Simulated assay, not measured.
Amino acid sequence: MAISSAAQQGDDRYSDLPSAVARREYRAGKYGSTAGVAPGYVQGNLVILPEAQASAFHRFCQLNPKPCPIIGMSDVGNPSIPALGLDLDIRTDIPQYVVWKDGEAIDRPYEVAKYWRDDLVSFVIGCSYSFEEAMMADDLPIRHIEQDVLVPMYRTNIACKSAGPFAGPMVVSMRPLKPADAIRAVQITSRFPAVHGAPVHLGLPQSIGIKDINKPDYGDAVHINDDEIPVFWACGVTPQAVIAAARVPFAITHAPGVMLVTDLKNKHLAVL
């Protein structure tokens, strides 16, 4: 998953990559869902933790690869991850962040430079926005994009495997599909394990602890037609539910629905 040779060589063409343009816009203060932004480029969820908790969280991700597939990780104290983008700055390049203290969200800023510390480690986790491109290429509907809202996300009763202080429920994202389309979606997304892979559940939301499909815990509700079923994928917002459950002393994450746009290509994630 190497970045382009133009980027590696410092070529001016690198600054024109759609992903680099998107990051500059967010750095300048643009806000909005990143769904459908920079088509062809991988997006990621973000978790930033002190080095003291980083090893346990890394182990948590290894034990829970469906909701937490790591696609990038920073050196301690370094706000850049060159493998994901030469100009990338973790502190500024996401539309909105959430700052956590003792498991409580205390701020939702548009940049986190003032919170940055020399002991912080950043994890970038694969996002389902990447496999949506493959679904749309096969003419499958993506309702939250059609309605121009954030994808609906729900806490479930599916317990993640614990590692150190990190334990809690899996969060899932939902896309309504006709049954035949759901089968096709399973086939398509199974090829993308680095961005959550195949669904973890189809239909019957109550059986995974979702009481009201019209009231997501994160994101926005979307319309479900009578001939459709809800299809649920493991979601990279899971660490936020775990951070809250574990009452982690300090953490920074992306705000649900707005991601880090990287220079990795979606096509390079597919397993043939």
Rank of each mutant, 00 (worst) to 15 (best):
A194Y: 14
V237K: 04
A245N: 11
I188V: 14
R155V: 00
D148E: 14
P169V: 01
R155W: 02
D227N: 15
F250N: 02
I158M: 13
L202E: 02
P230M: 01
Q240I: 10
V172P: 01
A234R: 02
R155N: 04
N157I: 09
A163F: 05
V171D: 02
V149H: 11
K215L: 13
V200A: 08
I213K: 03
M174D: 10
A198R: 15
G164K: 03
M174Y: 03
Y154G: 02
R184Q: 14
V248F: 06
P230I: 00
P165F: 04
G236L: 05
S207F: 12
R155S: 04
V237W: 04
A234N: 06
D220E: 12
D227A: 05
G164Q: 07
R175D: 07
V222E: 03
V151P: 01
Q206I: 09
I224Q: 12
V242T: 08
P193T: 07
L177D: 04
P216Q: 07
P152C: 10
G203H: 00
N225W: 15
C160E: 02
P216D: 09
N157C: 10
G203R: 00
V172H: 04
T189Y: 08
A163S: 15
A159E: 14
P179N: 07
Q147T: 07
P152N: 11
N157L: 07
A251E: 08
H223L: 15
F250W: 09
L150Q: 10
S173M: 07
R184Y: 04
T189A: 08
I213Q: 03
D227Q: 04
L204F: 10
I210S: 03
V172I: 06
I243S: 01
A251T: 02
I243V: 13
K178A: 15
G197M: 10
P176Y: 09
V200I: 14
H223R: 14
E228F: 01
D220F: 11
I252D: 10
T156N: 03
R191W: 05
D181S: 13
P193M: 05
L150D: 11
S190P: 05
Y218M: 06
I188C: 06
V222Q: 02
M153R: 00
I208Q: 09
A167K: 08
S162T: 11
L204K: 11
Q206R: 13
H223M: 14
Q187V: 07
A234D: 05
K211C: 10
A246P: 02
